[in-house]
């Protein structure tokens, strides 16, 4: 397989990267960011949304900083798995794809992972056979093949593992771009549908994520549904974090991934449950509430009805640590 030609840029500082991006924007040249390349290059080989320029973040030293509460965008998932951050992140990192992928793939790339769909993650020849897909072959006027007769919304699924874990740890994501730097709660980073995916503006990229000191007091778990222990993206994932004191459970956050176009934190069911926490039976109630909240569609390996039902089981299992 061959990617269409593109020009690779390899800035060595954040400033240089931002300047490069601003320049390409000004010249109306399309471009993508690449960090580990495991997501982008696979898509490029299938001629999915390719751009004439690619800016690599791999040579930017500042992006590799990695300590207990600061994770640079260029930190490899393999390093995260064996690194100094919260155990929940290390656990989740270890479940991603395969060891070989994790050696290249990065935290930034995983957070910005392109959404996936059976009708989208296919070769150019394949997409021609379905008369194209509107997520990638926009200028063809193609329809969405998952939910036909609408070509505005994209329902491709976000299948990253780290995002829900960072959400329950209340992490902050930091961006840099031609208009300067900005930070926000990771929960606010994801937006809208499978095409928009997140709030990144053209020319903007993720520099790092940070977790609050208070997250040290949190316990957590990540439960992932995937057919194989290696390679597979999550078909559904539930992250939970909580603080257990003598007095009982004082904090509880639950987030899900791989069920919709963006990962989602479920604030209300968790807060409601805290009011009258009763261990397993409350967990089962939350699990049911979460199952009702998410609406997967039929575009990943397992059928959506099954994924929803499994969310219930995963949530229950993720919360096991709260009573056991």
């Amino acid at each position: 397989m061959k990617t269409p030609p593109f020009r690779l840029h390899r800035p060595t500082t954040i400033d240089e990267a931002v300047t490069l991006a601003a320049d390409l924007v000004k010249r109306k040249q399309g471009f993508d960011w690449v960090s580990g390349g495991t997501d982008l290059l696979a898509n490029y080989k299938w001629h999915i949304n390719t751009q004439p320029h690619v800016i690599s973040l791999a040579s930017i030293e500042e992006l590799t900083r990695h300590d207990a509460h600061h994770i640079g965008a260029m930190v490899r998932l393999h390093e995260l798995e064996h690194g100094p951050t919260h155990p929940l992140l290390r656990q989740a990192a270890g479940t991603i794809a395969s060891t070989l992928i994790r050696r290249s793939a990065t935290v930034g790339g995983n957070l910005c992972l392109d959404t996936r769909c059976f009708w989208y993650n296919q070769t150019e020849d394949w997409r021609r056979s379905i008369d194209w897909c509107h997520k990638c072959d926009c200028d063809t006027g193609a329809d969405c093949r998952v939910i036909p007769n609408q070509n505005t919304l994209c329902v491709a699924t976000y299948q990253g593992d780290l995002a829900p874990c960072l959400m329950v740890l209340d992490a902050t994501i930091h961006l840099a771009g031609p208009e300067g730097v900005r930070s926000m709660s990771i929960a606010d980073f994801y937006a809208l549908d499978g095409m928009t995916r997140n709030v990144l503006k053209t020319g903007e990229f993720v520099t790092h994520v940070s977790t609050p000191e208070e997250s040290n007091d949190l316990d957590g778990d990540y439960q992932k549904l995937s057919l194989r222990e290696s390679w597979d993206f999550p078909e559904a994932g539930v992250a939970a974090a909580w603080k257990r004191t003598e007095a009982g459970l004082s904090t509880l956050r639950i987030a899900t991934t791989a069920c919709e176009s963006i990962p989602r934190i479920h604030l209300e069911p968790a807060e409601a449950a805290l009011v009258d926490w009763n261990g397993e039976s409350t967990a089962i109630e939350i699990a049911e509430a979460i199952r009702r909240e998410v609406k997967p569609v039929n575009n990943t390996y397992f059928p959506p009805a099954y994924r929803r039902k499994m969310l219930r089981v995963l949530t229950k299992r993720a919360l096991k640590g709260t009573w056991m």
Binding site: S98, R228, E229, S230, D232, Y301
Partner: peptide
């Protein structure tokens, strides 16, 4: 990736 051949695990 989607034709699921078993991994070592």
């Amino acid at each position: 990736l989607d034709y699921k051949i078993m991994s070592v695990h």
